[in-house]
Amino acid sequence: MLYLDKVNYIYQKGTAMEMPALHDVSIEIRDGEFIGIIGHTGSGKSTLIQHLNGLVRPTGGNIYYNGRDIWDEDFSRKELRTKVGLVFQYPEYQLFETTVEKDVEFGPSNMKLPKLEVQLRAFEALKTVGIGEDLYDVSPFDLSGGQKRRVAIAGVLAMKPEVIVLDEPTAGLDPCGRDEILEAIDHIREERKITVVLVSHSMEDVARFVDRLIVMDHGCVRFDGPTKEVFQNYEELEKIGLAAPQVTYLTAALIKRGIPLPGIATTVEEAREMLKAVTGVK
């Protein structure tokens, strides 16, 4: 669906402040996938996702959406942005209207849809992310951190995108707000069956949800594969400043001590099942 072919990006090209951000990144994003992108600060993950909906023009390489180059003269990037929804890290960057409902309507009303359809889409989106009707007329600036993010996600979701890209949706939230967001994302996937790309630096979150993991380091793709397989390389992940979920270390240590687990676990539930099977305790 989305295909990046050797994408390169250099910030402020042609000045003294030139800074390479992406180097030969080739990724294919297929229909219905749940992808996680991890990497430490400055690894290029935020730059990468801004390429997905044509907000940033690559300084080298091509990006294809359903087989068409998105930087072709006659390709409408405005339309692409309704198909590939991007939610930025801070909801403060996009909330501006007087009420939650109006704010969510901003996206679909830019698509020149009839008023009723716009409203309907806003309601649906707000419902999907779990914002109750009592908050529709509240100013988005009066919401809690977790609520703001959910409204921001709804604002993108209301355009009915085929892919939704979320940039660190849980960063800076308390555990309660974090769970709210993750549940909302899970709900979106279940309900709409769309492709989700989740940028995160929380290994636990990623391990719990995503099927495929892309690891970025210094503007390059270091690993790209099923979550479990990628976490097998936890020693290498550590070298580039990342880590596997804590439970992975625990199971790895248990195996080293001679406990015959079938392999390393990436989530707590998985580890529990394994231990139950091995010890026979119910």
């Binding site: 801004q50 909906n53 907000l55 405005k78 942005r81 309704t82 929804g85 991007l86 939610v87 930025f88 403060e92 960057y93 996009q94 909330l95 501006f96 901003f106 996206g107 830019n110 698509m111 604002g155 993108v156 355009m159």
Partner: peptide, 29 residues
């Protein structure tokens, strides 16, 4: 601007008044 563009905002096209109106979603945040 990028966040609003991701929601379909358009800063490059439209009449003069439309373009001014298009700046509201940028200036408030």
């Amino acid at each position: 601007m990028k966040a609003q563009q991701a929601r379909g905002a358009d800063f490059e096209e439209g009449k003069f008044m439309d373009r001014i109106k298009a700046l509201v979603p940028v200036f408030v945040p």
